[in-house]
Amino acid sequence: MAKIYYCPEPYPDELIGSTLVRAGRHLGLSIKRTHDLFGLTPTSHWPLLFQNQLQSIAIALGKPADELLFKHTPFLYVTSFLSYEQTARMTSNYCRSQHGKSSALSQSATIGGAVARYCEACIEDDQRVYGEDYWHRRHNLPFVSRCWKHGTRLKMSVRKNAGISVIGLPHEQHGSTVTPAFHEHIHDRLERLSIALLDSTFRQPPVVWQRSYRQIAQQRGFPRQGNQLSSIAIAKGFIGYFGKAELIRAGLNVPDKPNSWPVTLLRLNETSNVSAKHILMQVYLQCAPVPEVVTTTVPGPRPLNCKLMDPVFASAIRKRVANLAIGCRITVSQLLNQLGILQQVLHNRSMLPLTAAAIAEFRSTEFSERQTGRRPRKNFRSAKKTQRNQGSY
């Protein structure tokens, strides 16, 4: 890395990528040349939220690496639901390493909102105070669609890249207005929680978060299944409150399975460190109505709708009998088996009167192997006994 004699001072709440964009502009260098100057891998854009090799950038800016990490990246938001020890370890690994990778941090910080956002009113304020505008941290958090300062809708960049990357400053964008992913009353709560986490230094182990979520669910009377909370009811209520399409649009889809991610946030020994998921869970537990009890059926075949199927079976039997060839003789079991309804009739014969009448009609025809009132059933046991008695004379 070449020696850098000048580098701009980061502005309040400015993202690290924004500072590097301004550095290139002040030095009159292209994006790739500025990457090379800071010892970074040359690319055609600047990752906005985090940067690899933060230590080298900190030296060039004359700032402690941890100060850049805490004040100019969404690191505190990303680690909000980790323990103090886990947060300290991640801080040390990212700040002290010359090859610290930012991809995992960027991915976690963009779930729920993966487009660079800016406020037009802030652009005017920044240009009036500093002579130039920049990208703000509080505008680029998941679920944030309004400016925390002016209350106006944010604009979003048309460049949609994973990790949120930019090639210029906010005033150079021609973006569209941000549309909230969820209903307005839900999105406002999500937005406030997301911004509050950016300055929070409170930490506790993931298992403590799980216990607190379970306690809230139990206090509110969420449905139970045995001794545990009903995972099916919780998942169904979660989707019903936020909306399936809305969750997918936010990149937080809930699969239709018992072990979906909202359930794991309540289950001991399973967790997720994604802050956006915890924010959704907290809003759900505090604001959503208590989910309804979900009645599950016992595994096995579904009960037959006898009222519906009785005339269908009777009609099928009569139609089959009408199409039998002359001279053909079959039993009732064979007839029903050919129609594929043998087991249904055997297990529900008392509930199928029309089917029973059709079977009785079949038994009186010449096609029945056992015809009612015509051919007496032959008693083979009596015949053998008679033969033995005749042979004794």
Rank of each mutant, 00 (worst) to 15 (best):
Q338A: 12
E124C: 09
R363S: 04
T34Q: 01
A162C: 09
E172H: 00
G24A: 04
V144A: 06
S260C: 03
K319N: 15
S260Q: 10
N259Q: 09
R318C: 01
P301C: 09
N161D: 14
K236V: 09
E191M: 01
E124I: 11
C287H: 06
Q387N: 07
R224K: 04
R203Q: 04
A23E: 07
S382E: 12
I216Q: 13
L198D: 13
A217L: 12
H26P: 08
T110L: 02
H278A: 06
I279P: 08
A104P: 02
E124T: 14
R137Y: 10
S83L: 00
I111H: 11
Q282H: 02
N389R: 13
S97F: 12
L268Q: 13
N93A: 12
P262L: 12
D188K: 11
Y213M: 13
T271C: 10
F367P: 07
A104K: 05
Y6R: 03
R329E: 15
Q344N: 10
V115G: 07
F143N: 06
F75H: 09
R117T: 02
G175R: 00
R374K: 15
E246L: 12
N227R: 10
M90T: 13
Q225M: 07
D13Q: 05
R249V: 14
S44N: 13
S194K: 00
L193P: 06
I216R: 15
G17R: 06
H26W: 09
I341V: 12
P291V: 03
L82W: 01
K244N: 14
L169N: 08
S350P: 03
F362K: 03
G168M: 02
T73S: 02
L193F: 14
P180I: 03
I57Y: 04
D36P: 06
S44I: 08
A358W: 00
T264E: 06
S275Y: 08
I330R: 01
L15N: 01
Q127N: 07
Q173G: 00
M309Y: 14
R302E: 08
H136F: 00
R349F: 12
E184P: 03
N259T: 11
S103G: 15
V115I: 09
V78F: 12
Y84Q: 08
D36V: 15
L169Y: 07
V332P: 09
I59N: 15
Y6V: 07
L76G: 04
E14H: 02
V263W: 05
Y94R: 01
I234K: 04
G226D: 11
H26L: 11
